[in-house]
């Protein structure tokens, strides 16, 4: 070993770069390359748009690209799920919220506390660099294990979910339930409800007033309505 002080930036762990890049020339490699570049490009676009609608749209594109990548990994069921849940459900949710709060930002990035935040980004870069050190193999890797025909199908994943991993499955369904209830509670307007209560009290007081015309009882009625208001 001539150079033990090698770093990931230079000679990747001692492996030959051309060896590592060779698989990209195959048919599979081209598909991966197209999908990967698409995903990266779309996600960068998503994170840099001022207009939220275009951000959401590029995110949808990212998810489609990811679904394709999942398929190349023989994860067919998850690829379908990715399209259904992310592109179908979650993104629709985002679109709705964009409709409610449709505001274009004047500035992309707030400068408040920017040194800390930038340092956080660099910390992320550092971690990726270290992890890449183990992800990238020292020499060209061998072939992947052969898979059964049912790998990644609905039947096989479902079998696993409902037999071995039933408890996490049920737990996550409970989490979804809690999230639904939480979403309703948080987004419900508290003021509207109290307005409704006050309005109902007023209606009751007015009906009382209309049935008693004598002014002597007026103050008493007001007290009653005040008490009713305080009660709610």
């Amino acid at each position: 070993m001539a150079d033990v002080a090698g770093t990931p930036g230079g000679n990747l762990g001692g492996a030959n770069v051309s060896d590592l890049l060779a698989p990209l020339a195959s048919g599979e490699g081209v598909v991966f390359l197209i999908l990967a570049l698409g995903v990266v490009a779309m996600s960068v676009v998503c994170m840099t748009r001022r207009n939220p609608v275009s951000a959401v749209m590029s995110l949808v594109a990212t998810f489609f690209g990811l679904a394709g990548l999942y398929a190349t990994l023989s994860a067919h069921f998850l690829a379908v799920l990715q399209v259904l849940v992310y592109a179908g459900a979650i993104m629709v949710l985002f679109i709705f919220v964009v409709m409610i709060v449709n505001r274009e930002e004047s500035t992309l990035v707030s400068l408040r506390g920017i040194p800390t935040r930038l340092l956080g980004v660099f910390a992320g870069v550092y971690m990726i660099r270290v992890f890449a050190g183990i992800a990238i193999p020292a020499q060209a890797p061998g072939p992947l294990p052969a898979l059964s025909d049912s790998f990644g199908t609905v039947a096989s994943v479902g079998d696993m979910l409902f037999r071995q991993d039933l408890f996490p499955f049920e737990a996550i369904s409970l989490l979804l339930l809690v999230a639904i209830v939480g979403g309703v509670v948080v987004s419900r307007s508290a003021r509207k409800e109290s307005d409704a209560v006050i309005a109902a009290d007023k209606r009751i007081a007015i009906s009382h007033l209309s049935s008693h015309d004598s002014p002597a009882e007026l103050s008493e009625v007001e007290e009653t309505s005040a008490a009713a208001g305080g009660h709610h």
Partner: peptide, 10 residues
């Protein structure tokens, strides 16, 4: 969140 990332990196 940035502090969290820095801590994780450390």
């Amino acid at each position: 969140m940035a502090a969290f990332a820095i801590g994780a990196a450390a």
